[in-house]
Design a protein around this nucleic acid. Sequence first.
DNA 1: CCTACCGATCGGTAGG
DNA 2: CCTACCGATCGGTAGG
Lengths: 198, 198
Amino acid sequence: MAAISEAGIDLIFQYGFPSTTLRMVAKKVGMQAGSLYNYFEDKQSFLYQIMKRSRQDLLEELDRKLTGNSDPVRALKAFIEVHIEFYTERSKEMFIGRMELRGLTDEQFRDINALRDRYEWQFTSILENGRRTGDFIVDDIRLTTYAILAMLTDISTWYRPRGRMTKGQLIEYYTNLVFRILRCERPDATGGSDKPAD
Amino acid sequence: MAAISEAGIDLIFQYGFPSTTLRMVAKKVGMQAGSLYNYFEDKQSFLYQIMKRSRQDLLEELDRKLTGNSDPVRALKAFIEVHIEFYTERSKEMFIGRMELRGLTDEQFRDINALRDRYEWQFTSILENGRRTGDFIVDDIRLTTYAILAMLTDISTWYRPRGRMTKGQLIEYYTNLVFRILRCERPDATGGSDKPAD
DNA sequence: CCTACCGATCGGTAGG
DNA sequence: CCTACCGATCGGTAGG
């Protein structure tokens, strides 16, 4: 199943979901098209599985890195790091997750959307915490959430592993931009060198 | 032809290009499918026409609003205004322009991409001017271009005409975010009330 | 997991 | 701009 998913991700990323035929997937893993139906009910469910898996993994990864971080500045830094790491490491899946939502049934769409909302809400609550503590200056929480997430997500559309910047430099640069948006001047805000004492 | 394009835009926006059949387009404008071939060579060219038109209109609109604006702060404000106006007013086309690039031939893709590059370059040169005059504080021009354009373009994915904010408020809010990113503190930077004397 | 197949649909064309 | 049509392909299934 792992090989089938991987083949599906590659092909859907390259050709889009409607133009990816099950015969292409089958050929890539050395099977006959009909045999794929032992692994999913229909073509739509295959797409749904791929999207659900990546969204769930993202949420789990975020939970792991966010636990015990009650300080909004530290939490925000962790969020940005997780986001950029995940969206560059698994860029094809996250790309599919944005482009192929129309390929789902209404019910599947609602389900995936709920996962996306949970993720977005995590970010929003960090902003709210930071505003309460006075670390961030935010006027409209919702618009600011949209703006920052769009900025961070876009990285996956152009990022290449052998680019002129390391992933660490990228994270540092975008962290700086985000803190500028929030007018956060705390000395530990953007620098990536200081180890938090936990 | 205008009706055919409009029907195509609506359908491609809703179902995606590969899933939009020429029979659907024909039905929407009260024609037979075969008759559409009097208006374009093949399905791909139809998509190409739609994309090219919107990209060209955007560039023309930008040129119109940018001429004679040598001051980087004023130019940036004009750019943001044009961008948000266009991406909300013609959101379906701009959505298609980002989602359906795979539907083009290599040659068509390069052509559309060139138009996109010209637009991006306009923004980049405003940033460079502002850095030279000292109005903007920018470290990496390219990353900052990507980040800001992604932020602004994202608006078209959630904007609804009857939302809680007017388009003017939206422009003002995002203008403020952009100037924060650039650490631009000039008094006329974000306020939308002061009429430029030209 | 394979063979063999079906019904449906689609882009595109001929000829008018 | 229509009628009529073709070749190709696709998702999905039966039966093993």
